[in-house]
Amino acid sequence: MIEKLTLDINGEQWVATVRMADTLLDVLREKLDLTGAKRGCENGDCGSCTVLADGLPVKSCMMLAVDAIGKKLTTIEGLQDTPMQHAFVEKWAFQCGYCTSGFIMNAHALVNQHPDATDEIMEEWLSSNICRCTSYQEIREAVKSVLKEQRFDRKRPRNRR
């Protein structure tokens, strides 16, 4: 079965003709040229294909595209100048960059869902992704710096923003 389906990606409607067996990752990359999500294992193990579905990280290699209909999808291409991207740059939280899209998507969702994330929650979330270049310490520092910044922002009086 091949069908035309409409996906809500980064706030836009995208139409693609897909095989029902195509994964969301296949469709993002091959039909829509949104190649920020990477094929690292296509087996749900490495997290480099992570995108957000209704604000929650999912591994797009393990999700059928047809299953994503009706969900608000966010890919790395949908992040514009976010604190997490800044933090990854400033803390040197990547080297080759291949796992980076997935890591950032996960970390971005984490700080949104858990503005007060403890080390334990960070570990629970971020152990879903594999990075082979960094020591993870850089990623930890990046995520922590965003959490800290957010906390600071919340404490500041509204009118100053």
Binding site: T35, G36, R39, I76, Q85, G97, I104
Partner: peptide, 23 residues
């Protein structure tokens, strides 16, 4: 000096085209 990688922003924006990204 800790000069940031030239390709930093491309890497955090999903903009780098690795070989598999050229279709």
């Amino acid at each position: 000096k800790s000069v940031l990688k030239k390709e930093s922003w491309d890497k955090v924006s999903g903009r780098v085209k690795y070989i598999d990204d050229h279709q």
